[in-house]
Amino acid sequence: MDVGARPHPLTSDLADVVGRLRENTVEMRSRGRASGSGIIWRADGLIATSAHVVADAEPVRPGAQVVLADGRRLPATLVAWDRKLDLALLRVEARDLPAALIGDSDRLRAGELVLAVGHPFGLIGAVVTGVVHAAPALGRHAGPRWVQADLRLAPGNSGGPMADAGGRVVGVNAMIVGRLALAVPSRVVEAFAMRCAPR
């Protein structure tokens, strides 16, 4: 057997999915400092992220900026935010952005592959892989049901995408509890976007 001549198809598949997901992921900055990650939710400039990435006591930190994967830096304005859902929507002046494919968080199965892209510790576009720990309906926490994943996130992953094996975004990474990654399900994000920024 000609070992090492060609990578396993799994490897190239993973590289393809990760490559696309990195284009859908943005870096959130405020006051010139990185504050987390975000997702290009729509090609017309709608960005989804976690509320705690763009706001703390005040609704939005001044001077919010979005850095695209191609390096462009765009000023962002706040469209809506919800502390309970831990979601925020921002808008940048741009068209034809590489929008993320949106998956269906309600159809996740325990054990299926998930990956996350984000900017933990200043590493741009870092990827981690794992599996769905439990489908969203099992969330024990009050309020929104979470996608729970056996996935090693770090603080800078907040607001970034959790995606399935097809690269479809199934959640917005929100927090780490114990060694579990929790994400706001894509269903919740999509409903929030339809409510606050109708097409």
Binding site: H8, L10, R109, E112, D164
Partner: peptide, 20 residues
Amino acid sequence: MQTLLSLSNDLASAVERAAR
């Protein structure tokens, strides 16, 4: 894409089968 998707499906099915 097919290899990654089928691995993902296999893993979820493995969990489902064992979970019974």
